[in-house]
Amino acid sequence: MALEVDVTLRRGDRMIAARCTVAPAGITALFGPSGAGKTSVLDAIAGLVRPTTGQIAIDGTVLFDSARGIDLPPEQRRCGYVFQDLRLFPHRRVRDNLLYAWRRLAPSERWLSPDEAIGFLGLGGLLERLPATLSGGEAQRVAIGRALLSAPRFLALDEPLSSLDHARRDEILRVIERIRDELRLPILYVTHDPAEISRLAATVVAVGPLPGS
């Protein structure tokens, strides 16, 4: 499944253009300086922000097409979005955060079991905790697990290392590498750090303001 994005969107008084094809497996990095609009592009792909023009499609399923008037709501896009600020539900325990999407999925849509995800991400000891009691790295792994258990068509990671210390960064990078190698899922990875791109061997797409705007 390849994710194809070609959109322009308005952010404040600027126009942002993003055009990329996210390979069926492996990591595609949206790269650009802070404030370039990388998160806005992810929001547009997830259906949280409406682009002015363009198309977004994954493997033949059109998520957005301004010309044809198609704009699927976020809940129909199956986008595994791991937000930069994580957005774990503060009133639900880790277990309920993880299973939030999974419980409502048809069995045929599920491609990962909770046990697999919990083992994969090492969340076994955290299930009864509330998000407020988790460390940064733990919360990051829970957010990734919650997104994976929504049976996404692709994964969107927004600066997943930005608020972690050095040791935790390595831990999360290893998790992302395992997702890349074992789950074979298109991964869109937002970063402003060239070191992360070279470590993850990502294909790079630059995001920036539209020339002349």
């Binding site: 949280l48 709501p73 957005r87």
Partner: peptide
């Protein structure tokens, strides 16, 4: 209410009512 949490719920497959 933190509306970012509502956005997160929507990306996790929840319609407006859920």
């Amino acid at each position: 209410i933190d509306r970012r949490l509502e956005q997160a719920a929507r990306t996790l497959g929840a319609g407006p009512w859920r």
